[in-house]
Computed example of a mutant assay.
Amino acid sequence: MPHSAQNTALTPAQEAERYLENARQILSEKAGKKDGLYKDIKYVKMASGTAYSAALLILDEYLRQREGIHFTKPKSIEDYMIRLTKHDKKLLRILANVYDDLHLAGYYHGTRSVDTIQNGMSRVRQMLTYI
């Protein structure tokens, strides 16, 4: 079965899991790791963006469940944070860490720190429990 046909049947949680698995695979197969640092920043950025996208998929589903027919897709990280303030402050704190670790440090700045990226990915897995 083609990948696109298969993806239509996935739940938001399954799709987020797929993104996380893709990110893990990019890191393990292409980024290279030595002494707690990744060797190839290009692949760290790619994996970080993919894992961060999983977080946004999770948040969209979480907000859709909470807001029902009033749900509209947030347009910025600030919008996500404001809306989470109304629903779950623990999830808001997790998002703040994911944003810092994966979006800013990993994707935007291209950190080489294995710990930073792994912490971010671990927090995205935590977010999965919310949907």
Rank of each mutant, 00 (worst) to 15 (best):
M1A: 10
P2H: 11
H3P: 05
S4M: 12
P12F: 03
A13D: 08
Y19N: 04
Y19F: 07
L20W: 04
L20F: 02
E21A: 01
A23M: 02
A23D: 07
Q25R: 14
L27T: 00
L27I: 01
E29L: 12
E29Y: 08
K33W: 00
L37T: 02
K39V: 07
D40S: 02
Y43T: 00
Y43H: 06
A47T: 04
S48P: 04
G49K: 07
G49V: 01
T50S: 00
Y52A: 09
Y52M: 08
A54D: 14
A54F: 11
L56R: 15
L57V: 11
L59M: 04
L59G: 08
L63Q: 05
R64C: 11
Q65F: 06
Q65P: 08
R66K: 13
E67K: 01
F71Q: 14
F71C: 14
F71I: 13
T72Y: 13
P74C: 02
I77P: 06
Y80W: 09
L84H: 11
K86L: 15
K86D: 12
D88V: 04
L92D: 10
L92V: 06
R93L: 04
I94M: 12
L95M: 14
A96C: 11
N97V: 04
V98E: 12
Y99P: 07
D100G: 14
D100M: 15
H103D: 08
H103R: 15
L104K: 13
Y107M: 15
H109L: 08
R112H: 12
V114E: 09
D115W: 09
T116M: 03
N119Q: 08
N119R: 14
M121N: 03
M121S: 06
S122Q: 15
S122H: 12
V124L: 03
Q126F: 10
Q126V: 03
M127Q: 14
T129P: 03
I131P: 07
